[in-house]
Every structure is written in structure tokens, then in C-alpha cells.
């Protein structure tokens, strides 16, 4: 979001950045600031700040997606890139999405479970 360099007020819209801050300044700086959704205190009901206090992935956590409430998720992107998708819902129940490995050669599995080349030998 863009903040005014003079008064620190967050720009409410693109038009405001274009026309300038009410304080008179036309200079804004972009940064990762917490959105001011509740009149500046950042504690609005349902806002991301409400959850920030207790959202974290501990080392013992096996889930890489937490469901905090209906429609509110927290992702552990690092965990998702490493492990299968594990979701923990608000009741503490785990759901695991077992990845289905596709054959890289695009061939349909033969269904014999033999080692590579073994089937060919048998056909001879």
C-alpha cells in the first residue's frame, strides 16, 4: 500500500495517489504495511490483524494449511512445497491430499508392477 511521506496516512485509492494526500503532499511511498481497516487501530473484526496474533506454524505442526474459520485459511508455503498438502480444520481434524504421481513418459502403466525392462524380457 502507499503511504504519504509527510503524514503517514495510507492512500485510500488510486485517485488519492493521483490527486495527492489531504495534507497537501503528493509524495507517497509503497511498502508492506498493515491495512488500516478499522479506523487506524488495526483491530477490526474479521480483519487479517485479528488472526495475526495467533497464526503461526510451530515446528511440531504437521499441517501446512490451517482453517481458522469458514473461508479463512493460513498457508505454510514452505511446507506446501516440501510435503503433501495437509489441512487442519477448525475442529482439529487433519485432511491429507496424497499426491498422485504421474508417469513422466506419459505412458499408461502396464499394471504388472515389474521392474523396468523386466516385462520386455518375458515377452521374448
Amino acid at each position: 500500500m502507499h503511504k504519504c511521506v509527510r503524514c503517514g496516512r495510507a492512500a485510500a485509492s488510486l485517485e488519492e495517489i493521483d490527486s495527492g494526500c489531504p495534507c497537501g503532499s503528493k509524495a507517497f511511498v509503497f511498502g508492506r504495511y498493515e491495512p488500516d481497516l478499522a479506523g487506524g487501530n488495526g483491530k477490526a473484526e474479521g480483519s487479517p490483524q485479528q488472526y495475526n496474533a495467533h497464526i503461526s506454524f510451530a515446528s511440531e505442526d504437521v499441517e501446512n494449511i490451517k482453517v481458522l474459520s469458514e473461508g479463512v485459511f493460513v498457508l505454510n508455503v514452505k511446507g506446501l512445497s516440501r510435503d503433501p498438502m495437509v489441512l487442519k480444520d477448525e475442529d482439529g481434524i487433519y485432511y491429507v491430499k496424497i499426491p498422485f504421481e504421474q508417469r513422466m513418459d506419459g505412458n499408461k502403466p502396464e499394471g504388472n508392477g515389474k521392474m523396468k525392462g523386466e516385462g520386455a524380457k518375458k515377452k521374448e
Partner: peptide
């Protein structure tokens, strides 16, 4: 029970990865 569920889920992940 919650501890067992967490460990079991980790076990599922380990089993899948060990393939």
C-alpha cells in the same frame, strides 16, 4: 487423542514421501 492425530498425520506424510 489430538497428539496421536498429529503424529499419525505426520506418519502419513512420511509414508507417502518414503515411496
Amino acid at each position: 487423542a489430538q497428539k496421536r492425530a498429529r503424529e499419525a498425520t505426520r506418519g502419513v506424510v512420511d509414508a507417502v514421501k518414503s515411496m
